[in-house]
Design a protein around this nucleic acid. Structure first.
Lengths: 203, 203
DNA sequence: CACCCGAATCAACAGGGTGTCGAAGAATTC
DNA sequence: GAATTCTTCGACACCCTGTTGATTCGGGTG
């Protein structure tokens, strides 16, 4: 996934690329991706519009790079989490969901743009979809394990349940952090989500 | 909400407007809204591009009219549903959720376009958001009533729970009917959703 | 230290979509 | 059949995207 679009690896080049990414994330805080022109990104990074194309092949390519980082951050934080579901299942699930809440909150602009771009851009769709599959796989494994040790009852197909709950997180957090109406208050989100996950899985 | 954009109410005019709406829903089945040009809609309805602007002020305006109908259909079907939650709560919830499943399935193209357009168009956002608030209000009332009669335990704030569950439906059905990966299979969707709603509300 | 070569940049162009005129055409009314 | 109103379209101005060929810049090399 790395080395997107750059032709060479020179010093000032990397800085320029970084400047474009920074500009993009900054501008995304106040406008949607298609309200941002490539001219905006280029001038924000101190280059001309054609210069932009030296570093990225399109606006969506910039978003892809930003999304890559956000997903990487979630991935990295999730794997280092303790997995003691037998001790206190609710607390364990809350920790996992908490990672999503925090990362989505920190990068709400990028997540919002990605969720919008996914509908029209196959690459964004593929990247997000891959990440979702990883998380769904993780959740499915835990649900299956909890059922195996008798803590959770068999019922709905574990994978289907895991998919639905992951989609729940995505949608609820997006709505909460982007000020939609209706939405769960950001401060309530973790409690509400954890509640639904735990009750759906264990009863 | 009616009488969007039309200046007069003449006969052939209504037919033309209808032709545009029909063309739009047809084309939306195979491409996203911004892959459809106004030229496409106009020629599909047998008029020239400037002629389009006589009936609608933009592509989003067309979508707004289509979405209005879909929401009206849900509304109409939900109010005529039996409300016997005390007899068999699970069956009652399943009926309500079933309406959403059916209407989303029948108009998947419009729903998909609306969900995409909501992010950039304030009017679409307002229309959808108003409908969501109605449905959330309905769900909240039922949850409160179920708690009052002792069928459901107090717990998560009823409104926050209702919001999260409605967002769950929206996201899961969208993913299912638009062939996302990962997604719950369309045939499983009603079971999975009903399961999550019932367990979240009653345990 | 002059030269060269490739990295980096930009002015200018082509293409495509949107929204808006004012004028031309069709229908209705008197 | 003239006047009025409704309806349509050709042509224009504008904005954004993506590309290309010429130009500038700076460090390694003899």
């Amino acid at each position: 996934m790395p080395q997107r679009s750059r032709r060479t690896a020179r010093l000032s080049g990397d800085e320029r690329q970084e400047a474009i990414l920074l500009t993009a994330e900054t501008l995304l805080a106040s406008r949607s991706l298609d309200e941002i022109s490539i001219e905006d990104l280029a001038s924000g990074a101190g280059i001309s519009r054609p210069g932009f194309y030296f570093y990225f092949s399109s606006k969506d390519d910039v978003l892809l790079a930003l999304l890559d980082r956000v997903i990487g951050e979630v991935q990295q934080r999730v794997v280092t989490l303790p997995r003691d579901f037998d001790a206190d299942p609710e607390a364990a699930w809350r920790r996992v969901i908490g990672v999503f809440v925090e990362v989505f909150a920190a990068h709400r602009a990028v997540s919002a743009a990605a969720i919008g771009a996914r509908l029209r851009n196959a690459e964004v769709e593929a990247l997000w979809s891959g990440a979702m599959q990883t998380w769904v796989g993780y959740a499915t494994d835990v649900i299956v394990a909890e059922r195996a040790r008798g803590a959770a009852p068999a019922g709905t197909d574990a994978r289907a349940l895991a998919i639905a709950l992951n989609l729940l997180n995505e949608r609820v957090l997006f709505a909460a952090f982007n000020g939609e109406t209706p939405a769960v208050a950001p401060s309530q989100a973790l409690d509400v989500l954890t509640g639904i996950w735990v009750r759906s899985i264990y009863s």
